[in-house]
Design a binder for these strands. Structure first.
Lengths: 192, 192
DNA sequence: AATGATAGTCAGTACTTACTGTCATAATGA
DNA sequence: TCATTATGACAGTAAGTACTGACTATCATT
């Protein structure tokens, strides 16, 4: 028995499942492998979770990080393009990084799979896009940004951040200077 | 027997495998399912390919589209930032779109999996980045682009195009106006 | 000591999967 | 017509997988 005294059985099983599934996908990992790697018997795994599916669902609910954009758009925006985009980008990347393993699992799932993991790659970004569109709209009104379609700019900003994150995920290399340089580009490209 | 008279057995099997694997991942599709969906017996599938792995390897060799960037960077560049970026972006997106199913399969594979599919997501982009870095370097020399790190700008351009492609892949929605708008942004952001 | 909670071992069930061998049939081309 | 090629059906092998039941052992608490 090699159990850590700081973490309970369920957590250990779930974290191990997340690790393994993010590498091999849901179908590529057996309940036996999860249990062994976590240091428990397969029987114990089933006692705690009932079935394989429930390991992932419970792990998601337990360990994912929700979006942190509400407080930003309501409390921290300074209406300075550069500073704001810096903050938004840093927050987005930080949040995505914290969820990176769950995102990887989601990616490797069946395309038509309907599960909560999709929140990370669909619902949250959609919400962020809405906020960002409103932000650009107001910046245009204040004439701090050139006259342009706010929704398109929001999409561009998100797509660039998303691409940087995904690229980093696949190469396991951090995107050095990405945030400051991308914000520079957007600031130069959008300032009147 | 419902065989199309225009396509041979191997091709039908391989294209079916690509379709199914791009939806469900390699591990999520059985040889039985591939054969049935293609309208052949499982026995026939094994006659043609020997084992499951070889279906995918052969399909990749048969159906993937290689990078088309050589001719662009050697023959079609006009040394006009907007026109060039438009061409590069359109070519990149077109190429990625043609490979979209194989890219999806690659994504769903084990992270440490070493296979030819990685060419699409690693080797080709790396090559493109090299060309693009050289392009920006020369544009800087000609003073058609502001003084900046050419490699970083190349990375940014790629990351944005990559993000747009991946986002379109996941949402099954084309990124409307992406190319023209992103090229606008880069042109405004990089022009002296 | 008795009890409850938790975990492990073992054997098993039912099903799935990749793959194989054998035989029969149909289609095609010379 | 005949030989060759390609395919299907069927039965099977060996291994893997998710999951279950029964039983045992250990530890903490009362």
């Amino acid at each position: 028995m090699q159990h850590s005294s700081k973490m309970n059985t369920s957590d250990q099983l779930m974290l191990t499942a997340i690790d393994l599934m993010s590498e091999k996908g849901y179908n590529g990992v057996s309940t036996k492998e999860i249990a062994e790697k976590a240091g428990f018997s397969e029987k114990t795994l089933f006692r705690h979770f009932g079935n394989k599916r429930n390991i992932l669902a419970t792990a998601f609910n337990r360990f994912h990080y929700g979006p942190e954009m509400d407080s930003i758009f309501f409390d921290q925006i300074k209406w300075n393009l550069k500073a704001d985009l810096q903050l938004i980008s840093a927050t987005y990347q930080g949040n995505m990084d914290r969820n990176r393993k769950l995102i990887k699992i989601s990616q490797k799932m069946e395309t038509d799979e309907h599960n909560e993991l999709k929140k990370l790659t669909h619902d949250y970004p959609r919400q962020l896009k809405k906020y960002l569109t409103q932000y650009f709209s107001e910046m245009i009104r204040q004439k701090k940004v050139i006259q342009t379609d706010p929704e398109i700019q929001a999409r561009m900003f998100l797509v660039m951040n998303y691409g940087a994150f995904m690229h980093g995920l696949e190469t396991s290399l951090p995107e050095k200077d990405f945030i400051s340089e991308s914000v520079q580009l957007f600031t130069r490209g959008l300032s009147p």
